[in-house]
């Protein structure tokens, strides 16, 4: 892939990352389980971005965190707060609307292309 295309693709994905993470946090998840969930859906994610993102979301009060020390290895779980759920639903609506608009735009483009 050319360097330009790669940087454009990264830019395109960047905005969707927050939405992808929020969508998986309706049930409590710890760092690595979240990575696995996302990768299971085919979303590759830069781990050096993900863990700092979780902290930022917590600071923005979209998620809450708690340490689970009951198992042999202590794990930090993140889950959406009430406010987080509200924001997530709105963001999801926004995304669906946007992608629909973009889709019809790209579809129109396709029909114009000579076959």
């Amino acid at each position: 892939m050319s360097q330009l295309l790669q940087s454009l693709t990264t830019e395109l994905r960047r905005g969707t990352l927050t939405l992808a993470v929020l969508s998986q946090l309706r049930t409590p998840q710890y760092g690595y389980s979240l990575v696995q969930l996302l990768e299971g859906s085919g979303i590759t994610i830069d781990q050096s971005t993900l863990y700092p993102l979780l902290r930022r979301l917590e600071k923005q009060e979209l998620v809450t965190s708690s340490w689970d020390t009951s198992e042999s290895r202590p794990r930090k779980y993140y889950v959406l707060s009430d406010y987080g759920v509200e924001i997530f639903l709105q963001l999801k609506k926004e995304w669906l609307k946007n992608s629909q608009q973009l889709y019809s735009l790209l579809k129109g483009e396709e029909e114009d292309e000579p076959n």
Partner: peptide
């Protein structure tokens, strides 16, 4: 301290 703890547990998870 908190980030160190979380990083360690994440790395061990992997």
């Amino acid at each position: 301290e908190d980030i160190a703890l979380e990083l360690r547990s994440t790395i061990e998870d992997m």
